[in-house]
Structure formats: C-alpha cells, structure tokens
Write a protein that binds this DNA or RNA. Structure first.
Length: 486
RNA sequence: GCUGCUAUAGUGUAGUCCGGCCAAUCAUGCGGGCCUUUCACGCCCGCGACUGGGGUUCGAAUCCCCAUAGCAGCACCA
C-alpha cells in the first residue's frame, strides 16, 4: 500500500531512448571558452549528462578553443567551475588547442585520400564560383601539389587569408553552404593564449576528428548545428568512419536576462554589471548567487528535453523545481519590510519562540525577546486595521486617534485572532534587529530581519510571507539578500 | 531568396513511428477550498490545447496534400 503511494512520487521524467545506446554511450559537451556558462549551455550539458547516466559510458568535456579571437583565457577555469557546480559526471577533459598536431595529421591523411585540397583562391572569388556550382582551380590539383601547399601552410609560407584547406563535398548540393566548406585557415593574429600556431582547424573539422578520436557515439546539440552535421558527414564519408547518432533540439528563448557574452563583458567593463554573477545575467553563477540549486537547473532542463520545436524557457518552471529542493531545507526567519515602530502597552517582557522550519520541529527554534517595542511592516498598518496577530507572540489591538495608531496587548488566543480575521504578521523586537536589503531584479527592498540571519551566509532561507532569499553578504551594517523566488 | 526543420492548454511535456484503448498525460501557472501561528509546504476541486483547410478511412492529434506561422543554416565562428 505504501509502496503504491510512494511510487507515484518517484515518477521520474524519462528521456526518449537513443538509438544504438543499449551498450553504453560516449558523449560530449563542447563549449567555447569565451565566458562563463549560461542557461543555454546548461541544456546541452545536462541532457548529455543524463544520457550518459542513463546508459552508462563516458562523458567528455571538450574545450573548443580553435578560434583565438573567441578565447577568453579566464574562461577555461570558469567553464570548469560552472560544470562542477552543475554537478555533471564528466569523465574526461580535452582541450582542442592541445591537439592541433592531431588535426594536422588527420588532415594529411584526408589530403592523401583526395578528400581535401589546399585552396589559394581569394575568398570572394571562391564564393562566386561556389554559388555557380563551379569548381575552383585548386580543386583539380594533384595530391602531391596539395601536400606541398599544405606543407607550405604549416611552415608559414602563406599569410592569413592566402590559403585554406577545403573539404571536397558535392558542388551540386542544393545548399551552397555544403559546397567545399573550409577545414583549416591561417590566422596571424591574435596570438592564441595557450599555444603558438598559425594554422587552425575550423570547427567542422576538429569536431569530426575529436568525435572520432574520442569514440563519441551520440551527440545532442542545438539545431543551429544541423547544417554542420551535414557538412561533417562528408568528412566521415571520406574516411569511412562510423557516424555518431545526432539529436538536435530546438531553440530555447530565454527572457529577462542577458545571455550574450559580448554584451555581458561590455556591461561588466563599463560598470553596468557587478561581474559575471550579476543577477541580471543568465549565467549559471548568477543563478547560483540568487539561490537556484544546480539540481533544479538540471531537472528543469531534463523536463524540457530534446524536442526539436522551439520553446520559451519558463522561469516559473525552474522556480518550481527549485522550490521543491529548497523548501525542505531553508530555515524560516522574519523580515519586516519598511519597518514601523510600535510600542505595545499592557504586556510584560517575555521570550517568543518561533520554529526554524514548520515541518521539522527537531531543527529547533529562534528566540525573540519581546520588551515592549516591536517593528512591524508598514503595509500592515492602516486605519481600517484594528487587530493584528504578531506571529508566535500575541494579538495586538490597534486604536486610531485620527491617523495616529496606538497598540495594546489583546491576549494570546490564536482563536481570537482567527475570529477577528487578523493578519498574522512578522515582527521584530525593536532592540534586536539588523538591517536587511533584499535585492530583486526589479530593485531593492529595504527592511530589517532577525540577527540570527547572519549565521545563514551563503544559504537560502525563507523570509516568511516574503519568499526565498539567499544571504549574499553579512556586514556590520546588516545583511544583503538576493531574492530567489516566492 | 535558397536549403532544411517544426507546429498539443499561459509555459514545458506525453501521445504521433505501428490510426481506434486520447471527449488527449504529467508538471508548472491561474482560480477556489482544506490544512496551517507564512501569502510557503502538503492535500482536494476546477480552468485550459491537438495552427487552419482539404483528402484517405468505418474511424485521424496520429497518414497524405495545401496554406499559414515560427525557427535554424546559408562565415576562412563555435
């Protein structure tokens, strides 16, 4: 009977089967080290991870840094940190700039097979020919000539733009993007931060080389790569290599945060954003700072799945996942927004106890000393309010002399408060509070909270009736909290 | 424009391959209620969708065609 009940709760979202995965998989996550990871990356990272966990196998992290223009030296570490935070089962890590020699070697093999040629055409000129489905003169060169030119490329006999390696495809392919696409180019500047080189593979080449070398069996990536998959197939065909199974998921629209690396960098440099973890950004570190748990991110991404339709990312759904994780563990505290001092007549000082968590008495209580004067939220006091219940304390009667309220003890009975439909409000002993600022995407909420909140630095707590927040900083002047969600 | 892909409630998702068991699943959201010294959590009830039009068929969310819409790619970026 209980088994049946609990089964219902163990309903896990199962991803669709991958063809040919029965005996395990080798997958990869292949980011560009141009900045920290954001929610968009999380989808690819989490989906591939989930399949590796589902079928067993290896999970490669492959840093794709073959374009020195798009490499931020600091990003290598940020990517690793972000992935570690996300909690993925990465088993192997490779960096493409360490492997240039492998790509050169494979390129030589491909030239030897007649599958690629060195093209010395002007870029514009080639494009024109390509669009007319006409082979450029270089295409007909002998293998020997190609080897000579390739050697000249590697020994820096060509300057940037003077030569490239192209893959022989099908000039009659209806999609011009498929026709003899480039595989290597020469770049004289900027210098690569990790390696001295001037001949760099293009993504479509290095990806195939690495997927083959690493034994990648399944690839899950965004549909912006569909055309690349088609291009890459030509290389597999030239070698007769086994092609991985691909899945291309649809575009994910994400609103409300900045995702563009260049825009983020600009904003950080000009002081618009405080850093890569500014909560207005969509980076994983920003989510972490706001109190979103990595597990929630993963769950949200798995719920979205690998469908090929375009979707809009729902913050509500992410928040719901996060709430499931955070609600059972977050301690509860009082936060008084826009505090008003109220002197309460008719009651002796005494100590109030409030539970740290309503569902877990074992966690204990906080103590609040009532000495006569309390802070209550301004919004709870208006001339039509004549009674309030201070949570875990007692009832208060409010008498109005014009617009001046006065407060009197009105008994301990919770039942009375219920009958009077009195709001149950947060309060703080006036003599024992600290300032608290809650930062939300919409702005700051200033108020006060219990001093004990200081001990929750770095943790997510719940301010009762306000929402979950993460304590970001504890200073002499008070605490700073980031609003997580309701 | 060219080359492709897709179209289920506000959002995400299951079902589509192999047509009937789908007056369409689950989650989230929203509304109402119960519980509760939180407007949280939990529980209960409700709201809400097969893009449109043709066709095939006894029967279509599911197959075919057309239309419409959206998206991706069309770089010596990844």
């Amino acid at each position: 009977m209980f088994a049946a009940l609990s089964e219902k709760h163990e309903h896990k979202k199962v991803l669709p089967d991958l063809e040919g995965a029965e005996n395990g998989v080798v997958m990869r996550f292949a980011p560009n080290p141009s900045g920290p990871l954001h929610i968009g990356h999380a989808r690819a990272a989490a989906l591939n991870d989930a399949y590796v966990k589902q079928y067993g196998g290896r999970y490669n992290l492959r840093i794709e840094d073959t374009d020195p223009k798009r490499v931020d030296p600091e990003a290598y570490e940020m990517v690793i940190e972000d992935l570690k935070w996300l909690g993925l089962g990465i088993t192997d890590t490779v960096t493409q700039s360490d492997r240039l020699h492998l790509y050169y070697e494979i390129c030589s093999q491909l030239i030897g097979r007649g599958g690629a040629y060195v093209c010395t055409c002007d870029n514009e000129q080639f494009r024109e020919l390509k669009n007319k489905k006409i082979a450029c003169p270089c295409r007909a060169q002998s293998v020997e000539t190609n080897f000579e030119l390739w050697d000249k490329m590697l020994t820096h006999g060509f300057k940037e733009g003077e030569a490239s390696v192209r893959i022989k495809t099908d000039l009659n392919n209806p999609d011009p993007a498929m026709r003899d696409f480039p595989a290597f180019r020469i770049l004289d500047a900027p210098a690569h931060p990790k390696v001295i080189a001037h001949v760099y593979p293009l993504m479509n080449f290095s990806v195939v080389a690495d997927d083959h070398l690493l034994g990648v069996t399944h690839v899950i990536r965004g549909k912006d790569h569909i055309a690349n998959t088609r291009r890459q197939r030509y290389i597999y065909d030239h070698f007769g290599w086994k092609v991985p199974v691909y899945r291309h998921y649809g575009r994910m629209g994400i609103e409300g945060v900045v995702l563009s690396t260049s825009q983020m960098r600009l904003g950080i440099n000009d002081g618009t954003y405080t850093g890569w973890d500014d909560i207005r950004l969509g980076t994983l570190r920003a989510l972490a700072r706001r109190g979103i748990s990595p597990e929630a991110v993963r769950n949200a991404m798995l719920a979205i799945g690998i469908g090929d339709t375009d979707i809009s990312f729902s913050w509500d759904n992410l928040y719901a996942e996060n709430r499931k994780i955070v609600d059972p563990v977050a301690n509860r505290y009082f936060f008084v927004h826009d505090p008003v001092t109220a002197q309460i007549e008719g009651m002796q000082p005494h100590t109030a106890h409030a539970m740290l968590h309503p569902g877990d008495a074992a966690r204990g209580t906080r103590t609040l000393e009532f000495t006569g004067t309390v802070l209550i939220p301004k919004s709870e006091i208006s001339p039509d309010v004549t009674m309030l219940r201070l949570k875990d304390l007692f009832n208060v009667k409010i008498s109005w002399n014009g617009s001046i309220p006065s407060f009197t003890y009105a008994g301990d009975s919770l039942a009375d408060a219920r009958v009077a439909k009195a709001h149950i409000v947060q309060w703080l002993p006036a003599q024992d509070t600290i300032a608290c600022t809650i930062l939300t995407p919409e702005g700051e909420i200033a108020g006060a909270c219990e001093p004990a909140v200081r001990s929750e630095l770095g943790k997510v707590i719940q301010f009762e009736r306000v929402g979950f927040v993460k304590i970001d900083a504890v200073k002499d002047s008070g605490v700073v909290a980031y609003y997580t969600h309701k």
